[in-house]
């Protein structure tokens, strides 16, 4: 299987602070890649570099075959992104948000209409078509944001803590959407703090103080660290961190 993300010694410095320190990894097409780490470990910074939102200090990164430093516009055409903050327009209706992002990514108009209908049906949102987004519950907003992020069928979708602040059942439903996306061949790159979600990933990387300390399947990681759950793996690794909140 081909690599859709290849990162080699990618580094980001803010002044004398090295947020991301020479990280290297690959992500294969169609996999769910979990990007874990404590707060301040550098996850979001790394992800923002991969999305072309932040220039890197040194190192190389290829996303969907394009160089993140020199071809960021091509990178952007081939990815979807869902940020930590809910970032759809609260004062637009559900269908208007979908139409806006469909249009911006260049999905032809007739296709926008038919795909919007399909999407709303799949999500069970048919009655919410004309609802202003700000009146939706958080779990629904997150589902909508994810669906909008993959509306243009990108090769890769980056999810930055996509399920913050919702209950386990809602999270579980959100992950069903993620599986549906991977079934369609979309690669998922996801950061999270929830260790039950880490179990759902095909492979997981653990970031500590800007480095990648471990990278493998959840099963192998648990064996390696003699742990029963991903939570224990995380505890063992994150305890070493110098710059966490605790």
């Amino acid at each position: 299987m081909e690599n859709v993300i290849e990162v080699n010694n990618l580094t980001k410095k803010f002044g004398s602070f090295t947020a991301v320190d020479h990280i290297s990894f690959e992500v294969k097409q169609g996999e769910i890649f979990g990007f874990l780490g404590a707060n301040g470990a550098g996850k979001t910074t790394a992800m923002r570099m991969l999305c072309g939102l932040l220039p890197s200090t040194s190192g190389k990164g290829l996303v969907a075959g394009y160089d993140i430093n020199t071809q960021s516009e091509q990178v952007k055409r081939n990815i979807g992104y869902m940020s930590q903050k809910f970032a759809l327009y609260e004062d637009l209706k559900v269908w208007e948000n979908i139409r806006l992002y469909g249009g911006i990514y260049g999905v032809p108009e007739p296709q926008i209409v038919s795909k919007t209908n399909d999407l709303l049906k799949r999500l069970g949102f048919e009655n919410e078509r004309n609802t202003l987004v700000n009146s939706l519950p958080l779990g629904w907003k997150q589902k909508l944001a994810f669906s909008v992020a993959i509306f243009h069928e990108p090769k890769i979708v980056f999810l930055d803590e996509p399920t913050g602040g919702v209950d386990p059942i809602t999270r579980r439903k959100f992950w069903e959407l993620i599986y549906e996306a991977t079934d369609r061949g979309i690669t998922v790159f996801v950061t999270t703090h929830y260790m039950d979600e880490a179990e759902y990933c095909d492979r997981v990387s653990m970031m500590v103080d800007g480095h990648i300390e471990a990278l493998d399947t959840p099963k192998n990681l648990k064996q390696m660290f003699h742990a029963d759950t991903m939570n224990e793996v995380f505890q063992k690794l994150a305890r070493k961190a110098q710059r966490s909140d605790s």
Partner: peptide, 10 residues
């Protein structure tokens, strides 16, 4: 944060 969502688009 909506402008950031716009900035990851082409």
């Amino acid at each position: 944060g909506t402008i950031e969502q716009m900035n990851v688009t082409p």
